[in-house]
Nucleic acid binder design. Structure first.
Lengths: 332, 332
DNA sequence: TTTGCCTGTGTAATCGTGTGCACAATTCGT
DNA sequence: ACGAATTGTGCACACGATTACACAGGCAAA
């Protein structure tokens, strides 16, 4: 029972101990299969006694079903993703699915990593990262239809997607800021290579255009607090803007700190600052950020819904669209 | 090449295509095995053409080595753990090891989950959570010696451990606060069931005792910002303390916000607030927390070191001790 | 009693690789 | 030039489970 046994017992050995064949042992562990209930009870008792559990690797080989799910993410530490990752991991585990995290900074490494995971015959792939192209995902996981989180409709039969639309909420937010009298807008992007950021930027740019305005300045960070802080100093000092739309909440907090500390300017009177994602931290009293927020629960519901459809082997491309909402704080 | 192929090609099929036996295909993918370099090149070429990769599930079954690593954590979103998780995941992936995340709120579910993961024959187990007992870990993963992050020396042959000692740093911090004239201390713990928290509390309690002081009040939160905020209001209002040591940085930020917003008291003059963990966010300008901090890189180095020792099959219990350092901010 | 269905169990094949062993072909040493 | 050592490849089995098929026995209907 307790202590360290070097080797794990196999079904054949257990069979001998219980005086049955290994097939019967297997049946004892399959919920609905033809087996006498007395035999099953006896086998389960012996199994418990010897700490036997069926080997999932061998079962997967036979089943063609590993119950492993690959999650491709940009980062684990990044709070905006972490909340969603947490939710998803719980939902997966409730279905007896085990998540494998693929997380990599470098692009070549990331593809290599995805190839490695694909050799483990994962049952599902969820791509959160905008750093990997849809085509790469399809090519690498050729037998597993990937679920891709996207910001525009994907026109590929071989992927399912969740599209996120924040244009209406962006319009609301811009409306409020313009009515407050702000005129000079800047966009502080996460990275310059991300197409997600380009689309998010477009939501706000369109809202500005509707009112005869445009971004007067633009900067690139890396989604971190430090980059938000640093770039905001430049934007405020050099470009003299009075409103900054940030690529995520963490950079927005950095920008707010920079405005207050370095230039002595406060939100929302001197300057308006807007985040994106709607992470829990944004609502903390010390931050109280105005942000373009996504309902994380609805988002993960959508991912699980797509996984279920794949499991049920429903054919055809599946696309779900979610819309963002404005969450108001004291920074805009 | 591109598009969706339902079935994955096997080594036997590839062998037929390349005019060799499946054994030779296998050898082509094993770095050092007796095979002609011309044959290998031809096989690899055909493999690339048909998108063949050896099936890791089958290989694991044969090898008795899955290259999977189970990480047992309390939460993914929690920043104090997230930074370390991020580092560890990168280090694992550099060694071609795939991390499976086990993360669960409920205790019974957690054990169930660990049992599930153990059926996947994981090569290593790293337990970050203080919510699972050493004995449970040993019993469930009976063939895999777990690596346990602990705050006291573990006396079990069947586990390796990393011990974290913050007593010296706690002494430094208490010294400073006492010299600043604070007298009434409170401890705001993470949870009441966590033995990690009891030990951390002891570091500070010992430092106080050395100076003839003791904690005058104590409260329990759940490591979240909100719980830090709420409990701090009570401590300050009801117990009238002038120093709060918190179980982690996030609660410390909540407590600081509560002091400032609800009671109009500022750090460090009116009140001293101390965090624990040393997460990046604690150093942000808006927080600037004094905290008992652990060197995350050294910590993960230690985990990787233990994994390497297990791989090299070095016998005996392995224990590594790390010490915390005080990181000074403007809250104490 | 005979026929036939249903239940419970064992036998053997299968999933896709890795590898020990045997053997042919080639190279080397003297 | 001939035996020995080396190299390259195929055959067959093992890894640990699931499952189609066969079959023995129990029980009900005719």
């Amino acid at each position: 029972m307790s202590g360290m046994n070097r080797r794990r017992i196999t079904s054949k050995e257990l069979a001998k101990l219980a005086g049955v064949s290994s097939a019967t042992v297997s049946r004892a562990f399959s919920p609905d299969s033809r087996i006498g209930s007395a035999t099953r009870d006896r086998i389960l008792a012996v199994a418990r006694e010897h700490g036997y559990q069926p080997n999932a690797i061998a079962r997967s080989l036979n089943n063609q079903r590993s119950r492993l799910v690959a999650l491709v993410v940009n980062a684990i530490g990044n709070p905006c993703e972490a909340e969603e990752q947490q939710l998803l991991v719980h939902r997966l585990q409730a279905r007896q699915l085990l998540p494998i995290i693929l997380c990599c900074a470098d692009h070549a490494d990331r593809l290599q990593l995805m190839r490695l995971a694909s050799t483990y015959q994962v049952d599902h792939v969820v791509v959160f990262s905008d750093m990997v192209s849809m085509q790469d995902a399809v090519d690498i996981f050729h037998t597993t239809k990937p679920i891709i989180v996207s910001f525009e409709p994907l026109e590929n039969e071989n992927v399912s997607s969740i599209r996120i639309d924040g244009s209406a909420a962006a319009d609301e937010i811009i409306d409020k800021i313009v009515r407050d009298g702000k005129k000079r807008f800047a966009y502080l992007a996460g990275t310059n290579s991300s197409w997600i950021d380009k689309l998010r930027r477009k939501w706000f740019a369109d809202a500005l255009a509707k009112r005869g305005l445009a971004f007067e300045a633009q900067a690139f960070g890396d989604y971190s607090y430090d980059s938000g802080f640093k770039e905001a100093v430049l934007l405020l000092h050099r470009d003299k803007v009075d409103a900054i739309i940030c690529g995520n909440d963490v950079m927005a907090i950095g920008a707010r700190d920079a405005a207050r500390r370095v230039l002595g300017r406060n939100t929302p009177d001197d300057i308006a600052i807007v985040g994106q994602d709607g992470i829990a931290m944004a609502a903390w009293d010390c931050n109280d950020l105005t942000t373009l927020s996504l309902d994380h629960t609805a988002f993960i519901d959508a991912v699980v819904e797509l996984i279920e459809r794949h499991d049920a082997e429903i054919e055809g491309p599946h696309n779900i669209t979610l819309t963002c909402a404005a969450r108001w704080g004291s920074t805009a």
